[in-house]
Design a protein around this nucleic acid. Structure first.
Length: 585
RNA sequence: GCCUCCGUAGCUCAAAGGAUAGAGCACUGGUCUUCGGAACCAGGGAUACGGGUUCGAUUCCUGUCGGAGGCACCA
């Protein structure tokens, strides 16, 4: 008996009442929709009567009054509707809490880890492409935002019944890769990640940084890198061997990071494969005269008709550019999956790129470009400015995670020094990732993130660990519950009903709606905000009322079930954000 | 110059076109012989500015001011 279902039935009852007044719905400016009143005493759901009043040409307050008296809620098929009354121009509905408590608790406990899920998406396929790292440097905080947003979005879409498919495109080709290759060739001295005892992606990244330092003194290096790109596309065996070696190092590093942060993919594409198809498609478009060859032999497309600029698709020397492979990949994904929708999780700085890409695809006769969506998110700023690998203002992904883990470790050990080191590490990792994921997901994607190393990562207040802590606290109570098993038959839900319990009830009922809202708007922030609210509401209840030492046995049992439902919802919500719960912290 | 996004409390963030704009941090004061204090309660403090649409605007439109990103043969 979730919020959504109750609202649906109330709306039906209301429409029925209006129909009996021969109300002309076509005159309504907006559809009728139910809202949640600002406080409990006002009711559980409400509707403002301004729109209806206008059609009826009566005062809104009068309309609300009349509707309240005419609505016979007892006739609806749910006996949960208690009454309707107006407060000014608002028509407010009251739900029978005794019945509601029983219904929602039973629903949550029986559905367990699936509570909140739906089949809204009817198993249609949605591709979520995210991460897409370059194999010339390790991932930084910006990549983490991307990874977490992509994973959470895919989880949320799956939760509302889509078949979400997570895709990673490895950017293992291009001039930037050749830069680190050249640097290694010139100054690598045959060293390896093993010989230097560094993680592979960090090892490769060192040479990318080295290139960028050296090129300042010697600009000629840029031409040499471009030559390597040419040789690479021509399949020069020595270059290919070096490329394979360095890519392997970088990828080995990525795999470790993904495993650490709990990110996984259903399908991996490599730019070194997709660019070829891109070239083919572009050459075909050239024959069809959708694009043209310039005097210098570069292939270009003119998009000025569409308020965009000209765009080079293939360079004069025949090598491909970024958009080349994106064209190829789009067709490849369509061929491999025939998706209902295709989402690209990429930072906002690439908005223009995606406008261009989608327009090119459309002109190239790509089917379903209207179902392609660029899920854009804001950049991350540190006190020194924006994150840039080349300029040293980067917050390395692996580093920041281990720093937060250290903080978590000391926190754990300060509360209990006798925990085994293995257990401390396990908990610290879970808590650190919760802190980081929750922090990055609580921002609306479009918002820029201003990251302050010390203040941003905390374990108190509006944080992931706070929600985890609330879950742990409930587990701790449940662990201590009396030995005799609690069965549904013995639970008297009628005994619940104080304001703190009702506040919890309403939030529990709202959970499926929050998931849906979060999923369809591709915005995990709704879910994050909700989980904080539920945690706060539970903690308020916890401080005001006893569970195990409640006045009587019936109340103890009923409250145990209620808090178990809270724990289940917190767990389901955190899991969708890619965060694990702990039984103890 | 053109395009896109963003301006909410001292700071970092929320908010179906609706009733009294919510949190966290920081600050001040309180709760607790604890079902786990990574907690709870109380307090002060905010919609950049001007028009417009609307019964009603933080939300939609428009202008000004301020910030960010983009307008690559880099990805």
């Amino acid at each position: 008996m979730t919020t959504e279902i109750l609202q649906k039935h109330l709306l039906e009852a209301l429409k029925k009442a209006l129909t009996s007044l021969s109300f002309d719905f076509s005159l309504l400016k907006e559809d009728l929709k139910l809202e949640i009143p600002p406080n409990q005493e006002m009711g559980d759901f409400s509707i403002s009567c301004f729109g209806i009043a206008k059609v009826l040409k009566k005062a809104p307050t009068i309309v609300a009054q009349e509707l309240a008296s005419q609505l016979n809620l007892n006739k609806t098929k749910f006996s949960v509707f208690e009454q309707a009354k107006n407060i000014g121009p608002y028509l407010n509905f009251f739900i029978n809490k005794k019945i509601w408590f029983k219904a929602i608790c039973e629903e949550i406990l029986s559905k367990g880890n699936n509570f909140g899920f739906s089949n809204f998406g009817k198993n249609k396929k949605i591709l979520v492409e995210f991460s897409a790292p370059n194999t010339n440097k390790p991932q930084h905080l910006g990549h983490l935002r991307n990874n977490f947003l992509g994973q959470a979005t895919a989880n949320l879409l799956a939760a509302i019944g889509y078949k979400s498919i997570k895709i990673n495109l490895i950017n293992d080709r291009g001039i930037h890769i050749c830069k680190s290759m050249l640097a290694y060739k010139l100054w690598g001295e045959g060293k390896t990640p093993e010989s230097e005892k560094i993680k592979g992606d960090h090892f490769v990244g060192k040479y990318y940084v080295l290139f960028n330092t050296k090129v300042k003194e010697n600009p000629e290096l840029l031409n040499e890198a471009q030559k390597i790109l040419e040789q690479w596309e021509k399949g020069d065996s020595e270059i290919i061997a070096l490329w394979q070696q360095m890519n392997k190092w970088a990828l080995d590093g990525f795999y470790k990071t993904y495993e650490k942060i709990g990110i996984n993919f259903d399908k991996w594409y490599f730019e070194s494969d997709t660019y070829k198809l891109g070239k083919k498609i572009i050459l075909k478009a050239l024959r069809k005269k959708i694009c043209y060859r310039r005097e210098d032999k570069a292939i270009e497309i003119d998009l000025s008709k569409y308020n965009l600029d000209k765009k080079v698709l293939i360079r004069a020397d025949g090598t491909s550019v970024y958009v080349t492979q994106d064209v190829g990949l789009a067709f490849l994904k369509n061929r491999d999956f025939k998706p209902h929708k295709s989402i690209y999780v990429v930072a906002s700085e690439q908005k223009y790129h995606f406008q261009v890409l989608f327009k090119i695809l459309e002109l190239f006769g790509f089917k379903g470009v209207e179902n392609c969506y660029h899920l854009s998110y804001g950049l991350i700023f540190v006190p020194e400015g924006r994150l840039k690998s080349r300029e040293g203002t980067v917050v390395d992904a692996d580093d920041i995670i281990s720093e937060i883990e250290q903080l978590a470790k000391s926190e754990i050990m300060s509360s209990d020094p006798n925990i085994s080191p293995i257990e401390v590490s396990r908990r610290a990792e879970t808590i650190a990732l919760a802190a980081l994921k929750f922090f990055l997901l609580k921002f609306t994607p479009e918002q820029e993130v201003h990251f302050q190393p010390k203040e941003s990562i905390a374990f108190e207040g509006a944080t992931g660990p706070y929600v985890q802590y609330t879950y742990t606290r409930i587990q701790s109570i449940l662990e201590k519950k009396p030995a005799e098993e609690i069965t549904d038959k013995l639970i008297d839900y009628k005994i619940l009903g104080n304001p703190e319990e009702v506040a919890i009830l309403k939030l529990l009922a709202a959970f499926p709606g929050v998931i849906k809202e979060s999923a369809v708007s591709y915005n995990p922030t709704c879910l994050a905000t909700y989980l904080l609210k539920l945690s706060q509401t539970f903690n308020e209840f916890y401080h005001k009322h006893k569970v195990l030492k409640a006045e009587n046995q019936r109340l103890i049992k009923a409250r145990l079930v209620l808090i178990q439902a809270v724990a289940q919802v917190l767990k389901n919500g955190l899991n969708l954000m890619g965060i694990n719960v702990l039984e103890r912290m």
